[in-house]
């Protein structure tokens, strides 16, 4: 604690110090008092990104490229068109894809004009089955994984069951929380080796059912199925671990500018000649994306043959630090 005398000494010291230093300006720091008008950094935007998604071209559709426009959620990558119920909207966009291949595609909620008395929400999400942290191999198994990992506070209202929506196969799983008085209705299918989920949340199960009924207007590719959904027709066939030694004829390792330890999940499309046609980084720092892009365009694959004909193929490669093995597979099979 300072005494009065010490304060006086400090003041005296300050005065002497100022006198002694008067010819010298304070060092360091910055003084922009005579600078032009300040240009403000914009708010509401992330300018300094960490590992983020990117792609080798801006033409090829990406899973995260969907958007709500004119009350319709469209996603060219998944061949998905979903018309929103009247007075429902997307207020906030989702985060970037995660380094374990998870996507928030859209978050739909009642608009300000919504007249209903009960709130609810619709989350449209996707999980790249090449990079899931779970042992699940398809959308059905991943839905079972969700069920198996529910804590005891939830009550399963309908175990994972295959249903038909708009002439496509989905797995439906309903559960609720008696304490929160909320219900979740999960509808999942698989497209291009991704689980695509529609999750309806709310207090009012009738509202959820009416929204689920409206899903019959949804447009999906023919491949959509909770146990298959591996591309084909107008899009490349997707094959897990196609970039294995038996298929890679020439491999060039990336030369990284900086040592990092994050997982870098990458989806590539290989053309009919075995060259890399398109690279999608789900999560990578720009320097990692550049190094991997430079390397991957030098890789050569054995062309993928379907019925003896070369076809484009889509696969995933995990660069960087792959996550460790996870828990054993669920033994609780879904009902069909």
């Amino acid at each position: 604690m300072h005494t009065k005398s010490s304060h006086s000494l400090l003041l005296l010291g300050l005065a002497l110090s100022l006198l002694a230093q008067a010819p010298n300006a304070l060092q360091s720091g910055r003084d922009f008092s005579s600078s032009p008008q300040a240009q403000k950094i914009p708010t509401g935007v992330v300018l300094v990104k960490g590992a983020w998604s990117s792609a080798s071209d801006s033409v090829t559709p990406l899973p995260e490229g969907g958007a709500v426009a004119n009350d319709v959620y469209s996603n060219q990558y998944f061949g998905l068109t979903y018309t929103l119920s009247p007075d429902w909207t997307e207020k906030y966009s989702g985060p970037p894809p995660s380094d374990s291949g998870y996507y928030v595609l859209a978050q739909i909620r009642p608009a300000d004009t919504f007249k209903g008395t009960s709130r609810g929400s619709i989350l449209i999400a996707a999980q790249d089955m090449f990079f899931t942290l779970t042992p699940a191999r398809n959308a059905l198994e991943l839905t079972n994984y969700t069920k198996d990992n529910l804590n005891a506070d939830y009550k399963v209202e309908q175990p994972p069951t295959e249903v038909r929506i708009a002439n496509h196969s989905f797995v439906r799983f309903d559960y609720g929380s008696p304490t929160a008085e909320l219900h979740w209705h999960v509808l999942a299918t698989q497209i291009r080796c991704h689980m695509v989920q529609f999750i309806f949340t709310g207090r009012d199960t009738k509202l959820a059912e009416s929204l689920i009924q409206e899903m019959n207007q949804i447009k999906l590719p023919a491949e959509a199925s909770p146990t298959s959904g591996t591309g084909g027709d107008d899009v490349p066939t997707c094959i897990k671990d196609y970039a294995s030694d038996e298929n890679v004829m020439e491999r060039v390792d990336p030369v990284y500018a900086e040592r990092r330890f994050n997982p870098v999940p990458v989806r590539i499309i290989i053309d009919k000649e075995g060259k890399v046609k398109h690279i999608h980084f789900l999560s990578a720092f720009p320097d990692q994306a550049k190094a991997i892009t430079d390397a991957l365009f030098q890789w050569r694959f054995k062309p993928y043959l379907l019925d003896g004909k070369p076809e484009e193929v889509e696969t995933g490669i995990m660069f960087g630090r792959a996550p460790r093995p996870t828990t054993p597979p669920s033994t609780n099979a879904a009902t069909k």
Binding site: G94, Q107, L123, T132, F261, P323, T326
Partner: peptide, 26 residues
């Protein structure tokens, strides 16, 4: 920590986190 992350991987809330890692040993 990794086991906990995997246990949450099937969540239906739009959540999928990552870990920050030490620059020396990862």
């Amino acid at each position: 920590l990794l086991a906990n992350q995997a246990a949450q991987a099937g969540n239906i809330f739009g959540i999928s986190g990552a870990f920050n890692r030490n620059g020396n040993d990862g």
